[in-house]
């Protein structure tokens, strides 16, 4: 099975590199939520997140020919998106406010009834605020690990960091979050 997957991924990559528009559309469709999700978690604002996510795909489109396939496509896309987000945050040219609680509160929640929904929204608000308050370089690690589910090695690749750095940043981030979410931990 693994071999089949690999072969299919290789064929898909060939189509992408050959400039196949349909393949590119498939790529955007497949990864849109992941790329947008990282951008929204990092920037806290839907409009800015969409701008960055779009830019990430455009850059991918322009440099697909240079993509050699040593990393997974998803890793490569995460890398582009993460760098764009971190650069945007570092540039200090942010037009829009950080966090954007209104944006994050409007995210879908899982609760069943109204009470559950209320409780859920309170928890989610606290959760999103806690994530948003993390320092950027820790936030990106915890977003990639616990929200996007990447392995340590992938995160190291995406961010160009040593494995040990990834571990320690993740540990600090989680410890921070634990402190802020204390009242929800039963």
């Amino acid at each position: 099975m693994q071999g089949d997957d690999d072969a299919e991924a290789a064929r898909f990559l060939d189509r992408l590199r050959a400039g196949d528009d349909r393949a590119f559309e498939e790529l955007v469709r497949t990864y849109q939520h992941r790329v947008f999700g990282v951008a929204l978690r990092m920037l806290g604002n839907a409009a800015e997140a969409e701008e960055i996510a779009q830019e990430a795909f455009l850059r991918a489109h322009r440099s697909l020919r240079d993509f050699r396939g040593e990393a997974k496509l998803s890793t490569w896309l995460y890398a582009i998106a993460s760098r764009l987000c971190l650069n945007r945050l570092a540039a200090g040219e942010r037009r829009l406010g950080r966090l954007g609680e209104e944006t994050l509160l409007r995210l879908p929640h899982r609760g069943a009834g109204p009470d559950a929904a209320l409780e859920q929204s309170e928890l989610e608000a606290a959760l999103h605020r806690a994530i948003a308050e993390l320092p950027d370089e820790r936030r990106i690690v915890v977003v990639l690990r616990d929200l996007e589910g990447l392995a340590y090695e992938e995160i190291a690749q995406v961010l160009g960091l040593e494995l040990g750095t990834v571990r320690s940043r993740l540990h600090r981030a989680r410890a921070d979050l634990k402190g802020k979410l204390e009242r929800f931990l039963t």
């Binding site: 849109q32 790329v35 947008f36 999700g37 978690r41 995210l107 989610e124 929800f184 039963t186």
Partner: peptide, 24 residues
């Protein structure tokens, strides 16, 4: 562990409607 479970239960936000078309 509870903190991590909370984080992992967070739903991934969805890209807005029409995003793919705008990118293309």
């Amino acid at each position: 562990r509870a903190t991590v479970s909370l984080l992992r239960a967070v739903e991934r936000p969805q890209a807005p409607a029409g995003f793919v078309d705008r990118v293309l």
